[in-house]
Amino acid sequence: MRSSRYALALTRRVGLAAMCLIAPCPVCAASLSSRDVQIIAKVLGFLDPAPAGGPIAVLFASGSARSKADADAIVGLFGGGLPSGLGTVTARAVDAGSAGSFPGYVAIILAAGAEKTGIVPSKAHGLLSITGTDALVQTGDCVMALHSQPRVDITVNRAAARAAGIGFTAAFGMLVHEI
């Protein structure tokens, strides 16, 4: 059952990526929805220990216009900021190729295409990494996968979280799927 759900999610992502490939960038939808980013903002309040405030880095793949467009679209969904347990959270698009580490950021969102950079395990220590692609969490390339449709589902890779030095409050940990 789980594999079929992942297959379904993967199919959705592949379909979304295919749509992005054939559509002009100005109308390319973000790989995360408005509801997704609202949830991400609130999830930050359940990090334990709570990080200092700061923006979220939305990573895009160097040289990929489509990945950049996706990152910009996600940043746009944050607008002037979203309410979080850490205060108001904003987001910035960050070129994965130019990023050394991520000082001052509170978390990382992987835009479409950025997952290929393999940047999270190597450079994102101490930061929660978030994706809309379940497979990245299965492989440990990202700590958290999230999608809000048809039902909010959050998956956390415990080993990846430990490696990144990330923890969650006990109540939140009881409510997500840990692998």
């Binding site: 609202q38 999830v43 309040g45 347990g85 909010v152 109540a171 409510l175």
Partner: peptide, 10 residues
């Protein structure tokens, strides 16, 4: 935090 968790999970 019932309120925030309810907002997250709908």
């Amino acid at each position: 935090d019932y309120g925030t968790l309810e907002q997250i999970f709908g």
